[in-house]
Each structure stands twice: as structure tokens, then as C-alpha cells.
């Protein structure tokens, strides 16, 4: 067996896309994540819901390496992800962080250029497809990003997250600052782009109904672990137990 086909067989066995197994994260003794496992296949859009403080943001930060993983493995296409955030990004994980991480003093175009993490030929970026999906961003290209409205900044953050054609996109606080209509447009665009380009998308939000409506699958996070969202009665148990 050649090294390449060996590598391929191993990937198939381990599962392509993002997979998290038995993830534990502690903050000064407190268990925030306690054996969390989930998977996002290429082209799939997966939701992660949970009440405030359940550990949704921590889950994304642990994937990216911003939070220390105390135990467990995070794999991308079968290969364990490194610990340092910049290395995770270079491996193909894009992360729209809590609060969007927009550089207010830079222009929209400069913000977007920073999203091209790996050196790729211009035609391999998703710029064309993104400009179709988020026409408002094109119009704002030369504005200082700090002058944009919250909703516009969210569009820029999503645009920046996808332009470098990552393997996986993590989105924190998806609905932040977006009107219900803009939210629907944005998440539908994410789902379509992910499917078309084989990008796995993991979306975090408090609104599990909205996630359920748009995602292939929704996990509920509670007590540091996740389980699959089955029906509406689950919301009550996740939020009020």
C-alpha cells in the first residue's frame, strides 16, 4: 500500500471533516466541557445550541486552540489538530469568534484579505461565490469596518471566514446583530456555500429553534456534553433543567 492510499484509508476510517472525541476543558478547576463528542462532515451544516454559559463558545475556542484542551482529541480529516490557534487556522479551520473579531480601523477589504490564511491562487478563493451571496459587503468594500452596523459587520466576518476556502467554518453567536430576515439569508448562504464547496459548518447560537430550522443536525450542550436535538420538548429540558 502506498503512503498516499494509506493516508486516504485512514482518513476514511477516522471520518473526513471535523471530529471531536471526549473533549474535556477545565477553567481553574471547574469542568466546562466534560467529555464532549461531535462530528461535522464536509458540506454539512451542524448547529450547537445551549443556554448562556453552557460552554458553546468554549467548545469553539477549544477546537481552535484558544482554550486548552485538557483531554480528548480534535481531528480534521483524521489528523489531530495542533494546539496553537495560528496552526489550527493554517490547517484549514476558520473561526468567526464571539463578538465577530472585526478590525475596526481597517477597511472591509483589508479585513477580508486577512481571511486568506493559506497562500492560494486567487481563483481558488471563494470570492466570486461570496460576492454573490453577500452583495452588501461588496458595496462597503472601501469603508472602515468600524463604521458598519452590527449586521453588516457580521456579514463581513462570515465573508472573511469563508474566503480562504477552509475545510471547516466555526461561527459563534450566529444571530448577533442580524435581523430575522438577514439571519435567514446569511445562514442559508452558509449552508449552500458549504454544500457546494465541501466545507463543514458548525454554527453556535442560543436559538435552538432557528438552528433546527436551518441545520442538518443540532446538538444541545448541557453539563459539558452534547446530545442530539430530537424535538421541541428537548429545548425545555436543555434550558430549564
Amino acid at each position: 500500500m502506498t503512503a498516499v492510499s494509506e493516508e486516504k484509508a485512514r482518513q476514511e476510517q477516522a471520518g473526513a471533516g471535523l471530529s471531536i472525541e471526549d473533549l474535556h476543558v477545565r477553567f481553574s478547576g471547574a469542568r466546562v466541557l466534560d467529555g464532549l463528542s461531535l462530528a461535522v462532515a464536509p458540506g454539512e451544516i451542524v448547529g450547537l445550541a445551549g443556554r448562556n454559559g453552557a460552554g458553546k463558545t468554549t467548545t469553539l475556542r477549544a477546537i481552535s486552540g484558544l482554550a486548552t484542551r485538557n483531554r480528548g482529541v480534535v481531528r480534521l480529516d483524521g489528523t489531530p489538530l495542533p494546539a496553537r490557534p495560528e496552526a489550527v487556522a493554517r490547517a484549514g479551520v476558520a473561526h468567526v469568534p464571539e463578538g465577530r473579531g472585526i478590525f475596526a480601523d481597517l477597511t472591509v477589504e483589508e479585513n477580508i484579505r486577512l481571511g486568506i490564511v493559506r497562500k492560494v491562487p486567487a481563483e481558488q478563493t471563494l470570492r466570486g461565490a461570496l460576492e454573490e451571496a453577500f452583495p452588501a459587503v461588496v458595496r462597503l468594500r472601501d469603508q472602515k469596518a468600524g463604521r458598519l452596523s452590527g449586521g453588516e459587520q457580521q456579514m463581513v466576518a462570515l465573508f472573511r471566514g469563508l474566503i480562504g476556502s477552509p475545510r471547516v467554518l466555526l461561527v459563534d453567536e450566529m444571530s448577533l446583530g442580524l435581523s430575522p430576515r438577514a439571519l435567514r439569508t446569511a445562514i442559508e448562504a452558509l449552508a449552500a456555500l458549504g454544500r457546494a464547496h465541501g466545507i463543514g459548518v458548525l454554527v453556535v447560537d442560543q436559538n435552538s429553534r432557528m438552528l433546527h430550522e436551518h441545520c442538518d443536525r443540532v446538538y444541545l450542550l448541557g453539563d459539558g456534553r452534547v446530545r442530539l436535538w430530537e424535538d421541541a420538548s428537548d429545548i425545555a429540558s436543555a434550558y430549564f433543567e
Partner: peptide, 17 residues
Amino acid sequence: LQFLAVAQRPETARLLG
């Protein structure tokens, strides 16, 4: 551009590789 990014938001800059 990366200098400006690190100066404004070091953590986000790392997320951008």
C-alpha cells in the same frame, strides 16, 4: 496588514493564521 491586525486584536489575528 498582519502587523495592524495583531496590534488591534491579537487573538483574532491568531485565528486568522
